[in-house]
């Protein structure tokens, strides 16, 4: 089997990771385009990268962190302002248990 072929099991797994529920038609269309793109990016296999370190941060400094001190005060009202559903000052989600 072609190694880049996305089989049903792999596609199902990817959808779980992506937290998306696709319709059967969407799934097929997405799989087809993904396979096309993956076939194209396989071009990278031409490169010999055996002795190459992966480059994550382009900046030598990496991440620069500030002191973990709150400066923005109580933002509960602001934080909830955009919530699709809320109740008594909290986010409301469907019943989970």
């Amino acid at each position: 089997m072609d190694s880049r072929r996305i089989d049903d099991h792999t596609m199902e797994n990817v959808e779980i990771l992506a937290k998306l529920s696709l319709s059967p038609q969407e799934r097929e269309a997405a799989r087809e385009k993904m396979e096309e793109i993956l076939a194209y990016v396989d071009k990278l296999n031409e490169l010999d990268t055996d002795n190459v370190e992966p480059l994550v941060h382009i900046s030598e400094a990496g991440n620069v962190f500030r002191k973990d001190v709150a400066t923005n005060g109580d933002g509960q009202r602001d934080a909830l302002a955009n919530a699709p559903r809320k109740k008594e000052g909290q986010y409301l989600v469907p019943k989970t248990v």
């Binding site: 990817v14 992506a18 993904m34």
Partner: peptide
């Protein structure tokens, strides 16, 4: 369902590809 209905086709394609 929220992500399915809220995102467009290209965005979903990139999320799927990225997850893969």
């Amino acid at each position: 369902k929220s992500r399915q209905e809220g995102f467009g086709e290209e965005v979903k394609r990139r999320i799927l590809l990225g997850s893969f």
